[in-house]
Computed example of a mutant assay.
Amino acid sequence: MLFNKLSIPVMLLTGSLCYLPVFAQEVPTPQQALQNFGIGAEQITQLEHGKIVGYEVSETSQEELAIGMAMILPVALPKIIDYIKRGNLTATESDLIASAPLANNADINSFKKFAFNDKQLDEAKAFLEAEPGDKFNLSKPEIDSLKSLQATLEDADDKTLLKAANQKYREILLQRLLAYRKSGLSGIAPYSRENGKTADPAMELRTDATISKAWAHYFPELQQAWLNYPTPLPPNSTEQFLWLNRMVEDRPTAILNHRVMVAGETGGIFISRQFYVGHSYNSSHVVAGGLPYKDGTLVFYSTCSSTDQVAGMGSGLKHSIGREQIKKEMIKRLQRLNKDMKRKASAVGQ
């Protein structure tokens, strides 16, 4: 399927960076960070004049789209951290239908607010009838379990079908969460595709975490724990699990997200992986952060997302279109952050 509007996550520090007191690891200087990202003197000048600049992020396969963006905000890092802590960034995400954190003892009730609604009945029915392919990201055992469920719903009315679809999806989300928490990347089941093929989000996420050399240089313990989860994270780390229901390509989709945050006065880093995505793309890996820069803050973030939609014939053109769409959304979010921070600073100064 050739996308007409590719919807790929470009989260910007959407978990609180401010839970943590200090860094245990060495923190790069802003100059080191700019050098690591290949941002030269001309772009630094643009940054210092309030422009948003891009930097190259390696793409490791035909299915991957990757891009990095940076800007300097004219406010101190603690104010940005406080802004994020209050959940202001998440509140601006127009494509978010619902979300909720997942506690250590999460069970089926943790997903009770995830649901297809009455207007999404066709989507719920399509889910119940899912086959191998890219319409839904499901493993072969999950598809087989749906076929077994279908046999019990042969004469069911729409209300019953909707209820059954919601309950089954919640069960799948819970099982995927438990498998990931138990075995990390190794616990992520592949998505079943046509002709016996599969998509492997575990391999994609492992590659993305391995190739992120810049942040790994300064946070090697965090990178190793991230790769080998559920190996314990460094003691100065805070993690969060949550589920989301987003509109992606005009369709609701379930997402399971694992985030790790480290922050202090000298800087902050945020890493996130979407280890299950209901459709349209396979996985997403985000690295974001902030460093004090002169009288403001250097903010940077990158996203690596994998989607079958940009592979195959015309891959180069598809990648170009996909990157441009991601870039526009990233710029929009950075501009929104900048505007909000200036507005808050102005209100305080009055």
Rank of each mutant, 00 (worst) to 15 (best):
F300D: 03
T60S: 14
I97K: 12
D144G: 05
F37D: 09
E324G: 06
T207W: 04
T160Q: 11
T29Q: 06
Y83Q: 10
Q120W: 00
P30H: 07
Y191K: 07
D134K: 07
C304T: 09
S110N: 12
K85E: 11
L13P: 02
K163W: 04
L6A: 07
I52K: 02
L242K: 08
L227K: 04
V75W: 10
E42S: 13
I72F: 07
R176C: 06
L177D: 13
N195F: 15
E123N: 12
K327V: 03
V260D: 02
I326V: 11
L96Y: 10
Q175A: 13
A124S: 07
T29M: 05
K182H: 13
K112P: 04
V310W: 00
K140A: 13
Q350Y: 11
I8Y: 04
A126I: 05
Q46K: 13
D118P: 01
L149E: 02
R206Q: 10
E93L: 15
P235N: 11
A202H: 04
N36T: 11
G267D: 02
R323M: 03
P235F: 13
L153P: 02
A263M: 12
L227W: 02
E171T: 13
S16E: 06
E329L: 03
L34G: 06
L177H: 12
P230K: 06
G290Y: 08
D144C: 06
A98P: 06
S346H: 07
R333I: 05
V310S: 00
L146E: 00
L47C: 05
I84G: 12
L65N: 04
R333Y: 04
W226Q: 00
N105S: 14
G349H: 14
S58F: 06
M247K: 04
I255S: 01
K168E: 05
G289H: 07
K79S: 15
P21I: 12
F270I: 13
L256W: 03
D157W: 03
T307F: 01
K79H: 15
K147Q: 12
Y301N: 08
Y276A: 10
D107H: 14
T160H: 05
Q274T: 12
K318D: 00
Q309T: 03
K51P: 01
Q150V: 02
E324K: 12
G196Q: 09
K159N: 10
S283Q: 05
L73P: 05
K327L: 08
V248C: 02
K294Q: 10
H217R: 08
G312R: 02
K339V: 09
T297V: 11
F111T: 09
Q175D: 14
P74L: 10
V75K: 09
L334C: 07
H49G: 14
P74H: 12
V22L: 13
Q224W: 01
A214G: 02
P220Y: 01
Q175C: 04
A214P: 00
E329Q: 06
